[in-house]
Design a protein around this nucleic acid. Structure first.
Lengths: 222, 222
DNA sequence: ATGGATCCACCTATGGATCCCT
DNA sequence: AGGGATCCATAGGTGGATCCAT
């Protein structure tokens, strides 16, 4: 029942449009999946369901979901007021040594180069299966947006490259934010200190702030 | 039913002695495990069974099995003639960049610093469950043995450090040997070429040659 | 509403080794 | 019998994200 990977961008967006207005339960039925009882125990379920529906391929790789098209898929949870309920995870912050990467070659830029956003109702007042999909839209950063993203990324990665991981806090960044990304607070990953020594710290991820994704929604409103 | 991790070396070896003469089926029964139908589909079963029996802790880490004691556990398959039927895997060959490790700090040396050898009958003429355990013994490399191991390691790692992975062949090394260590021949891992560029190659492991482990058995015969 | 903490799926890498062709 | 190829278990890391205390 899984769709084949789309061959073109327009095929992908056409497929995505067929989601508009459907409930998660409807989609789950079509794909012969069951709706989880608690979302707490299935936090990624909605995203994986939509991936499956659209035939995404790069699951669990630091690459866009639709590799051949260079398009990343992101669901975006929408609250009662029509705004994003959460920030949007993009990718891990590289904390290990040998960081000589530039913005141009960064995973963050690669992932955000072109994104298919799929809004999904996420009010806790609506049962999971009853939540509906909004109208999906394709987005690429405008020149202004990319400039801000690049500056944020540079500012944050400069701290990492200087070994000043402890100064990474979630208040930094205009559109971006760095927050923990791990199974729990005791997970550790390799990093390098200010003096160049080996150390360990909590893994972090790059997230897009809700204020930013909210502006994307507004620009693509009907 | 799993034994607690032993607190001292003598506790460990005393526990190990209780294995002597037992069949694999007997041990499996005690531990409420079942004997696999085919060893082909359970190549690591004997080793894991003995680990479990003795309370080993560092499963799946590049560290000795009994971390607190610094002791590595190795089962050694014995053929009809009383000789090792196979080479003995020690650890992965580090093929990635940033190889500045010395023999003194190498994983290979750490693992071979002190080993509890557990001989196990391995003639294909004996059914898996009927195979018996021989008398376990503790070993540390003699000065001469360590010299040869160190020279082997240095010779092999020099090739890696020079990016001459293709020259790594299983004929090199007196006691050591480098051979593939992967799920299959198409598995690739990161490495660096002679010219310093990124590349990929088949993962390799360090193995002890049967001739060498045979000499260890001989030195510890009753 | 912010941001630190958490939760499942899935894949990969490594530890445990033996298989099996030539 | 030497050495290239293979097989299972399990831990760890990342992708999918949301939870929830303050």
């Amino acid at each position: 029942m899984r769709r084949k990977a789309p061959k073109t961008e327009s095929e992908l967006i056409q497929n995505a449009f067929t989601l508009t207005g459907k409930s998660l339960q409807q989609i789950a039925l079509e794909l012969e999946q069951r709706v989880p009882a608690e979302q707490k125990k299935a936090k990624g379920w909605v995203g994986e369901l939509i991936e499956f529906y659209l035939g995404a391929t790069a699951s669990s790789l630091p690459e866009p979901d639709f590799q051949n098209l260079g398009i990343e898929l992101k669901t975006i949870p929408i609250n009662e007021r029509g705004n994003p309920r959460e920030s949007t995870y993009v990718c891990m912050v590289p904390l290990d040594s040998n960081i000589d990467s530039s913005w141009q070659t960064s995973v963050l830029r690669l992932k955000l180069k072109r994104v298919l956003w799929v809004p999904v109702e996420a009010s806790t007042k609506i049962e999971l299966g009853q939540r509906r999909i909004g109208r999906p839209f394709l987005w690429s950063p405008t020149t202004e947006q990319e400039t801000v993203l690049r500056n944020d990324w540079q500012e944050l990665m400069d701290l990492v490259k200087m070994g000043e991981i402890s100064k990474l806090n979630s208040g930094l960044g205009t559109h971006l934010q760095v927050r923990p990304k791990a199974a729990n607070a005791s997970v550790l990953t390799a990093t390098t200190t200010e003096s160049g020594e080996y150390s360990q710290t909590l893994p972090r991820g790059f997230y897009l702030r809700p204020r930013f994704t909210s502006s994307l929604l507004a620009s693509h409103a009907n």
